[in-house]
Design a protein around this nucleic acid. Structure first.
Length: 158
DNA sequence: GCCAACGTTGGC
DNA sequence: GCCAACGTTGGC
C-alpha cells in the first residue's frame, strides 16, 4: 500500500525545518491548526504518509524538505490552554474541536524549491498551493506533484 | 439565510 | 508595512 502525500506550512521564524530536525527524536506535534479544512486533512493522515515542509512568510517562500506522519490525529492540547495563543474557549474537553498529528523529520532538500520555481513548472499548475488566495496550512499533494517537486529539490550534478 | 464586519494568512 | 483573499462571527 502506498502512502498519501501532504504539505504543511510553517513560518521559519516560528518553527523551521531545522527546528524540526533538531527536535527530540526529530519529531514534533503539529499543533495550533485552527481551520476546519486543514484539520480534516490532518484527520485523513495515516502513519507513514509523506509531508512536504513549506516555509511561508519566508525569503523566499519554499518547499524545504520532507517529513512523515508518525502519529495520526489526536486532540490538540493547546486548545485548552487559557494562557496560550491557541486557546479556544468554545472547545470542550469531552468534545475537542481541534486535532494535531505528529510528524518526523526525514530530509532537507539539497536546494529549497521556491514558490517562484513551482510556478514555473507547467505540470504543477493545478497544485493547491499555487491557487490564487490559497491559505490552507495543511493540504494534499498528488503523487505526480510529489515526484516533480522531489526531483526539483535534488542537487543538479553535471 | 444573508451579508457586513472583522481577524488572519501570506506574498510582495 | 501593505493589502488581497479568505474564513468566521453575529446582527437582522
Amino acid at each position: 500500500m502506498s502512502h498519501r502525500c501532504w504539505l504543511v506550512k510553517s513560518e521559519p521564524e516560528t518553527f523551521s525545518i531545522d527546528d524540526l530536525a533538531a527536535s527530540p527524536r526529530r519529531m514534533t506535534s503539529w499543533d495550533g491548526v485552527r481551520n476546519y479544512q486543514a484539520r480534516n486533512f490532518m484527520r485523513a493522515m495515516a502513519v507513514g504518509d509523506r509531508v512536504f515542509f513549506y516555509h511561508s512568510n519566508a525569503d523566499p517562500p519554499a518547499v524545504v524538505g520532507i517529513a512523515e506522519v508518525s502519529r495520526t490525529a489526536y486532540p490538540d492540547d493547546t486548545q485548552f490552554d487559557k494562557s496560550g495563543d491557541h486557546y479556544d474557549p468554545d472547545s470542550l474537553p469531552d468534545a475537542p474541536r481541534w486535532d494535531m498529528v505528529d510528524i518526523r523529520f526525514l530530509e532537507k532538500f539539497d536546494q529549497a524549491v521556491s514558490l517562484d520555481r513551482l510556478r514555473k513548472e507547467p505540470r504543477l499548475k493545478g497544485m493547491t498551493l499555487l491557487k490564487k488566495g490559497s491559505r490552507l496550512s495543511v493540504q494534499p499533494v498528488t503523487p505526480s506533484e510529489w515526484d516533480i517537486i522531489v526531483k526539483l529539490g535534488k542537487a543538479h550534478k553535471r
